[in-house]
Design a protein around this nucleic acid. Structure first.
Length: 259
DNA sequence: ATGCCTTATTTCATAAGA
């Protein structure tokens, strides 16, 4: 089974590239983030044409997540338990079970800057994610939380830690929130880079950051032990970041050999 | 070469991204 996660930065703007990528990569299930589209205008027919079912959760201009699956899509859950808002809950999480594997597609709030009320929102949202995962008792199931976590787990996951002093994505409270997810029995499936030494998944559009490989690893797959133990390969598809009109994130692809 | 920001909308400017 091949699963993937990709922040597409607008599914409308990315649709031709997404369809080409689905056709060539053929993931069984894909978690998408920043679809930026209401559910009633999601390009459902185009995706279904390639054999995928769609569980979308969108609310307009910002945010938006989805799970696409060509191996079944059941028990769709939109939003978290007691999900906090800014001020109202946003479309940042959707869960679905695909061929016996429970997947969550998440788009964690950015936080803007430490001390900002959006940063407090980010931490509250991560706590709600932890609580939501906890009630599903993931440790003994094939289970993964996939998405744009907007947190770099370690200093090696940013191109230059010195640039991130007093910045979000690297602070101890954010990293502690990831540790609390790991305490629930989830494991960070670290993909291999296809080039260079570190598996960055995001590069700013500006200043040739991609071409200088000044990136971050913030798109993560947090998998339960049964799923993590079955991982045969995992890689960042940086090819999808190249060329004209890419997302600023690359997909993470994980191949699993489940018994 | 991979090439120096992009998105949707409150559109010819703005907010947000990270």
């Amino acid at each position: 089974m091949r699963i993937a996660t990709w922040n597409v930065n607008s599914i409308a703007a990315r649709l031709p590239r997404l369809l080409d990528w689905l056709d060539s990569t053929r993931p069984d299930a894909v978690c998408l983030q920043e679809t930026k589209i209401p559910d009633d205008t999601f390009p459902r027919a185009e995706v279904e044409e390639l054999g995928y079912e769609v569980a979308a959760h969108g609310d307009g201009r910002w945010n938006g997540v989805a799970v696409l699956s060509r191996v079944g899509l059941a028990d769709v859950t939109r939003g978290l338990v007691a999900e906090p808002g800014f001020p109202h809950p946003e479309a940042r999480a959707v869960g679905a079970t695909c061929s016996g594997v429970r997947l969550w597609s998440v788009y964690v709030p950015n936080g803007r800057e430490p001390g900002h009320e959006h940063y407090a929102y980010k931490l509250a949202w991560l706590a709600a994610l932890r609580d939501t995962v906890s009630v599903e008792s993931p440790e003994s199931l094939p289970y993964a939380v996939c998405g744009d976590f907007n947190v770099a787990p370690t200093d090696d996951d940013v191109w230059d830690p010195a640039v991130f002093t007093a910045a979000t994505h690297v602070t101890p409270p954010e990293r502690n929130a990831l540790a609390e997810l790991r305490d629930l029995g989830l494991h960070d499936v670290v993909p291999r880079p296809l080039k260079y030494d570190r598996p960055f998944t995001y590069w700013d559009y500006r200043a040739g950051m991609f071409h200088r490989n000044l990136g971050m690893r913030i798109d993560l797959v947090y998998a339960s032990k049964p799923l993590a133990d079955a991982v045969a390969d995992a890689y960042v598809d940086r090819e999808a970041r190249k060329g004209k009109g890419p997302s600023d994130h690359a997909p993470v692809v994980v191949d699993i050999d489940l018994p």
